[in-house]
């Protein structure tokens, strides 16, 4: 018997890496979203790459600088960049400028049912589906994050000192309420059932409000900033990055107060940097600071499989297609994996 030494690196590859497409693009992956059964990924050089099964990915030159944020609007993607552009891009590569703020960055974008929203500095711009000119919603400090609730009725805007929730009243006028908590609030999200609002803060902590009575509480104990979090399986859990385990807070019943989170450990003691839910399951994809990605069942810590082995660079994007067939992974060095998730 002979041993072919060249085969050894192959043995380190996961089955997903072996059957998927791996690229070394060399530019940070900054964001990714699913559009139907395709994935759109944004990069630090302003390109958008669209991955579809069975065909070669498309590369679009969209922005002049870093793509800072991405969201979807029906079959289109929305992107904001450090070139000041807010763009709408279709899957077949058509790029439309929504607006351009010059030297001001477009920090956050989101959309609901054709209503488009972006933030630049301290201002949120809201385009009603059928209107050309946006409504400006002003804030006292720079905006850290944007999120609609599941029904698109409320828009949460995180900022320094708390969150502003915007809503249109019966006469179609914008009204805001504030949730105050000292400090800098970044990513923000409503729970899918609409009962809670969560922000990640500059400090290594999450702030949560129970919206019916504005009761607020902290979720703390993290070793680093919580850059990524997501609600899992409707509002069963809130899975979070920021520790060497994926920390999953229970949100069923009376919520997480006074309850311990489930901590999902990973080999290598690396920080979890990205969390992506596995749709409709109590399971998550967890991306780590060394580039490795795992799929874990929250209520069964022994049921963890490795999707991608380490690359040496922090995982910065994970997205799964709507049909749950394929997954895209990207990191800060531009290593990407696009693979089907199921064995043939």
């Amino acid at each position: 018997m002979t041993t072919d030494l060249n085969q050894f690196p192959e043995l380190d590859k996961t089955k997903f890496e072996q059957r998927g497409i791996q690229l070394e693009i060399g530019v940070p992956v900054t964001c990714a979203v699913s559009i139907g059964n395709n994935i759109a990924a944004g990069f630090g050089d302003g390109t958008v790459r669209i991955f579809s099964s069975g065909e070669k990915h498309k590369t679009l030159k969209a922005h002049k600088g870093v793509i800072l944020c991405m969201s979807k609007d029906g079959d289109n993607i929305l992107t904001g960049g450090d070139d000041g552009y807010f763009l709408k891009i279709s899957l077949n590569g058509e790029i439309n400028e929504i607006t351009n703020f010059g030297s001001r960055w477009v920090d956050h974008v989101t959309a609901y049912n054709g209503n488009l929203v972006c933030s630049s500095g301290k201002v949120v711009y809201y385009w009603d589906k059928n209107k050309k000119e946006p409504k400006s919603l002003n804030h006292d400090s720079t905006i850290g994050g944007l999120a609609f609730d599941a029904k698109g009725r409320r828009l949460a805007v995180s900022r320094y000192g708390g969150v502003t929730i915007w809503k249109k009243d019966y006469s179609n006028k914008w009204k805001s309420t504030k949730l105050d908590w000292k400090g800098s609030h970044n990513k923000v999200s409503f729970s899918p059932d609409g009962k809670y609002l969560v922000t990640s803060m500059q400090e290594n902590v999450l702030r949560c409000w129970r919206l019916k009575d504005k009761l607020d509480f902290a979720m703390s104990g993290y070793g680093s900033k919580v850059k990524s979090f997501a609600f899992i399986s409707d509002t069963s859990y809130l899975a979070t990055s920021g520790a060497i385990d994926a920390i999953c807070w229970p949100f069923d019943g009376e919520g997480p107060m006074g309850r311990k989170p489930i901590c999902l450990p990973y080999i290598g003691n690396k920080q979890v940097t990205y969390i992506e839910p596995f749709p409709d399951e109590k399971a998550i994809f967890a991306g780590l600071s060394d580039g490795s990605v795992f799929l874990s069942q929250i209520e069964n810590e022994n049921n963890t499989i490795i999707i991608r082995s380490f690359t040496g660079s922090e995982v910065s994007a994970i997205a799964m297609t709507d049909d749950k067939s394929s997954i895209f992974i990207g990191d800060m060095n531009g290593n990407t994996l696009w693979t089907s998730i199921w064995d043939q």
Partner: peptide, 17 residues
């Protein structure tokens, strides 16, 4: 006290190609 805008801008610049 820290400069919040600087944290945001520096992390954005670090994503450049």
């Amino acid at each position: 006290t820290v400069r919040g805008d600087l944290i945001r801008i520096l992390s954005g610049l670090m994503k450049r190609a």
